[in-house]
């Protein structure tokens, strides 16, 4: 069952506060958060969050297509080390 629309998206208050502080300051930093359950809001676009996965903070660069997802979706708690083979990485 989906969440009622009238409630709006859930975001932990401290995440909003930290994001606001980061937007005001022009420092290039990773915003460390532990709230994996918080929804990614439009005002987070362009910021980099370090989302805790139980062991470390995984950097998540927020882009427009992530809006509406939860932070935890981008910070897996289990890591699979596959083979590099011909896999490619793109610098954006």
């Amino acid at each position: 069952m989906s969440r009622s629309v009238w409630k709006g998206p859930f975001v932990d208050a401290y995440v909003l506060k930290k994001a606001e502080a980061a937007r005001e300051g022009s420092r290039h930093e990773v915003i460390k958060i532990w709230s994996r359950r918080s929804t990614i809001l439009p005002q987070f676009v362009g910021l980099t969050f370090g989302v805790y996965n139980g062991k470390k903070h995984v950097p998540v660069n927020v882009t427009e297509d992530m809006i509406g997802q939860k932070f935890g979706e981008y910070s897996p708690t289990r890591t699979y080390y596959g083979h590099a083979a011909d896999k490619k990485a793109k610098r954006k």
């Binding site: 995984v58 950097p59 660069n61 992530m66 954006k92």
Partner: peptide, 28 residues
């Protein structure tokens, strides 16, 4: 290691002085 969990590529870097690895977003 190079990882990608859906939010862009990340370089996993082992610090020279040992300790826990660090994930660095692979951006310009």
């Amino acid at each position: 290691m190079v990882q990608n969990h859906g939010a862009g590529d990340l370089l996993e870097i082992k610090p020279e002085n040992g300790g826990e690895t660090v994930l660095l977003p692979f951006t310009l």
